[in-house]
Design a protein around this nucleic acid. Sequence first.
DNA 1: GTGCGACCTGTAGCGCGCTACAGGTCAAAT
DNA 2: ATTTGACCTGTAGCGCGCTACAGGTCGCAC
Lengths: 141, 141
Amino acid sequence: MVGMSELLLPQLDVEIPPEGLSIGEVARVTGVGIEALRYYEREGLLLDPAPRDPGGRRRYRAGDLAWIAGLVMLRETGMSIADLRVIADLSRREGTEAERLAFFSRHRERVIEQLERTKQHLAAIDAKIAAYRAVTEQEQP
Amino acid sequence: MVGMSELLLPQLDVEIPPEGLSIGEVARVTGVGIEALRYYEREGLLLDPAPRDPGGRRRYRAGDLAWIAGLVMLRETGMSIADLRVIADLSRREGTEAERLAFFSRHRERVIEQLERTKQHLAAIDAKIAAYRAVTEQEQP
DNA sequence: GTGCGACCTGTAGCGCGCTACAGGTCAAAT
DNA sequence: ATTTGACCTGTAGCGCGCTACAGGTCGCAC
């Protein structure tokens, strides 16, 4: 069975040296701020606390990156920190696949609904813009 | 020239008596809470403070409703309260049509971008769900 | 060995968008 | 006349998701 995490990864094709990436590098490639990365870890959103080098600094491997990319995706689709913690907790325990499936399915429904509403809103915005364009072009032909 | 506000209205087909609607009724039909409606007014998001009846209570007419529906739409597409205030301020002054157009155009770009990202994220979520479905169906055929 | 910059662990604070009182008024119903 | 309920004006507080220190350590360059 293939690992789940890489399915979350929206191809973050970045070279990852064998010793992993520092938190600053991860911040740069993921767009998640350093403080936010530490916050996510504190809040239990990562599968495990990021592994450390001998000096106690965090080193992120490909799997960590993929998971974080998944978090970003879920955040951007409106999932709360609390819900991210739920899926992190589930993903740590084996035999919870059905629950994870249900959780993602519910989220999917919300995203679809949000998408539909946004499309409608976009149409309204387009109409408004067209109307304004007509007005301004009429005044300055 | 037709009023701009009704273009914002995503057909809220509700009977509006000549004396207007109370704040509670508006809350019910728009989904915006009473406290939030008063907050919007305080923050200057309405074109004018809602007109009052002789007893000092707010009475909303069709135009007010339409404007509020527009606010809801813009909020749901991610516009901030501060930006709503900007468009309210612009809309109060005549001759600002070009600025309003520019403002909406910028917003439109952001909404489209957001829509694209969400679509991609949805595809990733779908893939994840399919993978989980495969796993769970395999275990419980 | 002395800077320097990037990292570390606390813990506190902040911006946003409401939300929740407290304490009062008003209008219609009984 | 009084009760009820929806409204009113303050003003304070809250949940969320970070963000910003303070004060320290580590490792590399010079």
